[in-house]
Write a protein that binds this DNA or RNA. Structure first.
Lengths: 214, 214
DNA sequence: GTCTATACTACGATAGAC
DNA sequence: GTCTATCGTAGTATAGAC
């Protein structure tokens, strides 16, 4: 039992170090840009030497990969807490609020967002494991979209896939513009996040009256 | 006259070298990502040494700056050629076609677009000179938007600034999603560029019936 | 004037001592 | 587990050949 306790303690300590590395990396990325992350700067802020980081991550890309996965998992979590993926609430409310929560999270986590939504790092491609929560969230969003249609908020013959793609473009556009042009503005009063209600109305109106025909 | 001729010839030669550097840089950025540009790779492809590039550009950032400016100027040019900024055509047609030309140019010039619309390079901020065509295009777009309203295609009391911001978010979103998720698809059959007509209809419909109130 | 040669600093990464 | 030492390559800058 003593050995197991020591192992737990050691593993917990290790986990704490991993968390610290990731937190510091996010801070560096927020200040210097996602591609401006350097292992030297992370090590410097932690008071260790760059090679020591290799005891926790297999290089810089592994760090990006962990941040990519954690970003999607964190987004998943806030959406679940907002009740956006549950079956209880009215689909329309869930859709509207879920979208707002998504955009808020994105602008409040610019470094994660840039890594997740754009691909600013030359050689980096997320692993299948890191991609998993993104795929799950995609599937959950499509399910909710179907419920939105079945509840009569969208035209019965709407092209769900096309409508979903359109929605991602609109929401992604608001996030993109806000982060590129005014990253320091808060969600509530952002130059672009402020038009999110308009954008939602636009999308809902279009798919309520105008079906996918074109 | 002979001296002037020699000077012209020398300057022309120099200009050709500058163009070649920029072309090669775009090729590298297209393959490796905007932040993946290295002077060594540019020099290697041109058959020269990295320090030779300093005779034409004051380092990598100056190269980015020139590409930023040329990108906006090129976009300006194709929009003018499409008649999107002239006074002749119907404002609605000009707006629709101008938007399509913009999106097409963006997806067909991914390296330029990433540099112009996102900010993927850590230390780089475009100079005022490089920004000029972007500002001009912004102003021209707003003028056209006012003409669109005055021609009765938008509600008379529409908030022009807000409508313009919304438009940039929508169009930027389509470009963003297309370039991030399926950069190799052509404009005509792109997963996201294909919904551009829907997005345009949405935006026009919203501002025709629903004024800025909210 | 334009290039090559060379040097300096910083980065990511690995090997091996303690 | 962390360190020092080291490698290869990048961006940058200067000196000097032609």
């Amino acid at each position: 039992m003593a050995a197991a306790g020591a192992l737990d303690r050691r593993q917990r300590r290790r986990q704490e170090t991993i968390e610290e590395i990731l937190d510091v990396a996010v801070a560096v990325m927020t200040e210097q840009g996602v591609a401006g992350l350097t292992l030297g700067e992370v090590a410097r802020r932690m008071g260790i030497r760059p090679p020591s980081l290799y005891g926790y991550f297999d290089g810089k890309h592994a760090l990006y990969d962990a941040l990519f996965e954690r970003g999607w998992r964190a987004l998943q979590r806030v959406l679940e807490q907002a009740g956006a993926t549950g079956d209880g609430a009215d689909p329309l409310t869930a859709w509207r609020e879920g979208t707002a929560v998504l955009v808020r999270w994105a602008v409040e986590h610019p470094a994660h967002s840039a890594l997740m939504f754009w691909r600013p790092v030359p050689g980096f491609t997320p692993s299948a494991r890191a991609y998993e929560p993104a795929v799950e969230l995609d599937a959950a969003s499509r399910v909710l979209l179907v419920r939105l249609r079945d509840a009569g908020h969208l035209a019965a013959d709407v092209d769900v896939d096309r409508a979903y793609r359109t929605w991602t473009a609109l929401v992604g556009g608001v996030i993109s513009q806000q982060l590129s042009n005014a990253p320091d503005e808060p969600f509530e009063s952002g130059t672009f996040t402020a038009v999110l209600p308009d954008v939602m109305d636009m999308w809902l109106g279009h798919h309520r009256s105008n079906p996918s025909a074109r």
